[in-house]
Write a protein that binds this DNA or RNA. Structure first.
Lengths: 135, 135
DNA sequence: CTGTATCCGGCGAGATACTG
DNA sequence: CAGTATCTCGCCGGATACAG
């Protein structure tokens, strides 16, 4: 990516540019809908429109793209039943299940420190002269 | 956010829409540069241009925006030394340090399963008829 | 050195219509 | 039901110029 970069193993857990994998994973699960999908499928297999209704607010297009991305990374499995009309079922793969733990760690951190973050934001915003109130 | 939504505590670790905090955190650390910054500051305080050079490939504008976002959330602290020319130092706050653990969990997962993901992608891409090779 | 201000191109994402 | 195709628009982010 950068000229002269050597693919050394990162000694730092956050050596992001040297480790595109982490960035890709975070980009995948950090987007608006992937976590919603994983959360829903965590409870069991689901069909396309059931997912769409369950999540709410997601467009057909974005749900399709999200599902394709997760499927491509091997996190969910897509099964087509050749009924009429056709039905398609999505479920977490084994790999997808292993992601739950780390995500939960982030989740717990976010829950545990949400007040700290809220307070930090309010304090920060209060110190800014003008042009704020985006939340 | 959605009509009829009740602010119940999520029993599912990934109930994202009900828990905007998680989404916000992931959006923050999931963006292209925040993790790079956190990774660099993990090793100690750093000045603006040192960060810029160290990360490489980041524009002044994006680095500034990234730092502002992290500062606003209370993850890093900005200290101005009134020298001439002025120097500004950034460092992780205590809150910022607590984020390292969960991020490392994701990092370890990404490292541990990168081959699985790579293989899943290749397999997925190989099954697609035409129009691929985006990597 | 450490930013802010401005311009602008590209793509992310919603809305809509159409297909098997 | 489960998608694909197309259009459109907003905003993200790079480049550049300027300021304290």
């Amino acid at each position: 990516m950068f000229p002269g970069d050597t693919p050394e193993t990162p000694s730092n857990p956050c050596e992001a540019p040297r480790c595109p994998t982490l960035l890709e994973v975070l980009t995948r699960i950090g987007d608006k809908w992937s976590l919603c999908v994983i959360g829903r499928l965590y409870q069991g297999p689901m069909r396309f429109n059931a997912l769409k209704r369950s999540i709410g607010g997601v467009s057909q297009r974005m749900l399709t793209l999200t599902l394709r991305g997760l499927e491509r990374d091997g996190l969910i499995q897509r099964t087509v039943y050749p009924t009429n009309p056709p039905s398609v079922e999505y479920q977490l793969t084994e790999l997808g299940h292993t992601l739950i733990g780390p995500v939960k760690a982030i989740f717990d951190w976010a829950e545990g420190h949400r007040l700290d973050i809220q307070q930090a934001r309010m304090q920060f915003d209060a110190q800014q002269p003008g042009a704020l109130q985006d939340i």
